[in-house]
């Protein structure tokens, strides 16, 4: 499957599911390798190795109604469901689009900022607001949340200023569509 098509060149992408794919690939590699080694050893030696016959004997003693079989079936179905969800669920974008500036002769433009970068921008802007002691921010493609700590008693006023400042900064940076900015203020005990 080519990675050089227009879709894979886009910078605004959904999660690639690398972690579940890597785990499943390793499991497939392990199962395939062990089975191949056991089968080739059987072809060479004329008999299955005891590492194969012992577990095979215990599995063959099981009935369909045994609790081990029921648990195995349930685990398989659960893993299947997890893989199915990982394959079908789109997942959130990890970048937000930035507006292209005017001018320049370029066929197509694709400008993005990572959600981590958005959070850093928001935190830096909130940190400039008078009265803010500590800031942490998180962002998705559409929402930015800023949590600030202040020693001031004017928590509502600080929240409004943080929200307005961050929203203004993101709009000025050209984040498009402009994410919804929310802020919470925790007042430190004086």
């Amino acid at each position: 499957m080519s990675r050089n098509n227009a879709r894979s060149r886009r910078l605004r992408r959904r999660p690639s599911r690398v972690v579940p794919a890597t785990i499943v690939a390793v499991v497939l590699l392990a199962i395939g390798s062990l089975t191949a080694v056991a089968a080739i050893a059987r072809l060479v030696n004329g008999a299955w190795a005891t590492q194969v016959t012992r577990p095979a004997r215990s599995v063959s003693a099981l009935t369909w109604g045994s609790s081990a079989t029921i648990v195995t079936g349930a685990v398989l179905a659960l893993i299947g469901l997890v893989l199915l969800v990982a394959g079908l669920k789109l997942g959130a974008f990890r970048t937000a689009r930035l507006a292209a500036p005017a001018g320049g002769e370029v066929g197509q433009t694709d400008y993005v900022i990572s959600t981590r970068g958005l959070a850093h921008l928001a935190a830096a802007q909130a940190d400039d607001v008078d009265g803010v002691d500590r800031v942490s921010a998180s962002a998705s493609g559409r929402k930015v949340h800023v949590a600030v700590t202040t020693a001031s008693e004017q928590a509502d006023r600080i929240r409004e200023r943080v929200q307005a400042g961050v929203a203004g900064r993101l709009t000025a940076a050209g984040v498009s569509p402009a994410p919804k900015v929310t802020a919470t203020v925790r007042t430190k005990g004086i």
């Binding site: 894979s8 690639s16 199915l84």
Partner: peptide, 16 residues
């Protein structure tokens, strides 16, 4: 670039 479509396709098939 990552193999996003390959991953999603095979995860779906194996999941089913």
């Amino acid at each position: 670039q990552t193999a996003a479509r390959l991953n999603r396709a095979w995860l779906t098939v194996l999941g089913i």
